[in-house]
């Protein structure tokens, strides 16, 4: 049994758990975007940052991957943590203006508006890669992947053509935290031959 503190509250955990696992077990809320229980964490969105302190020493880490250790002192809402979250959300607001989930989160964390220019008002993908990880780890087909690097990165299929590997299961849409996969799904699975909106009952 490992004992440590989250926001000064003593908690117990087992080896192999992360700080986030433990926090959730104790009902301590830490926001996440790229985390999904069905796939391995990847640490992309950085929203789940927490601060570790030990005397004067302090460090910001991501709770979704930080392994629990005896005697940790974790703070989920310190000034440093808030600064990181604020900027992430402010940047996401301008990067993914079309996502209501981002707007909701931003509001929750007190970010009302963004100082940055909006490049694409339609954009809603935060490139958290959940869809890619789900396609690989849960569905097992790896139909989609990250394409390109850095600022040019997008979610896509080989050659940006409908993928032969895709089984059209829609898991990517289901796990997507911002709803961005929805409008990308047809690029992946191909245009359906028939699209029936509604059947008469």
């Amino acid at each position: 049994m490992i004992e440590f503190k989250i926001n000064d509250q003593p908690v117990e955990a087992q080896a192999g758990w992360t700080v986030l696992d433990t926090a959730r077990q104790y009902g301590i809320h830490i926001p996440t975007l790229c985390h999904h229980e069905a796939v391995e964490p990847s640490g992309n969105c950085r929203l789940c940052v927490v601060e570790l302190r030990d005397g004067d020493w302090s460090k910001v880490v991501i709770s979704c991957m930080y392994p629990v250790q005896d005697g940790l002192q974790v703070y989920t809402d310190s000034d440093r943590v808030k600064n990181v979250r604020r900027w992430i959300l402010e940047m996401l607001l301008s990067e993914c203006p079309a996502s209501s989930e981002i707007q909701r989160l931003a509001q929750e964390y007190g970010v009302e508006q963004t100082r940055f220019a909006i490049h694409d008002p339609e954009e809603d993908c935060i490139l958290c890669g959940l869809c890619v990880r789900t396609c690989k780890e849960v569905v097992g087909v790896s139909a989609i992947s990250m394409v390109g690097r850095g600022v040019h990165k997008v979610i896509g299929t080989p050659y940006m053509m409908p993928s032969d590997a895709c089984v059209a299961c829609g898991s990517c849409v289901t796990v997507c935290p911002t709803g961005a996969m929805r409008r990308r799904l047809d690029l992946v699975r191909g245009e359906p031959k028939t699209r029936m909106a509604h059947s008469a009952v």
Binding site: K136, V141, S142, A143, I144, S145, M146, V147, G148, R149, T157, P158, Y159, S163, A165
Partner: peptide
């Protein structure tokens, strides 16, 4: 290696 992953690698490196 799945095609998508190889494509990802091929587009990652300059």
């Amino acid at each position: 290696v799945p095609l998508s992953q190889a494509y990802s690698v091929a587009t990652f490196y300059k």
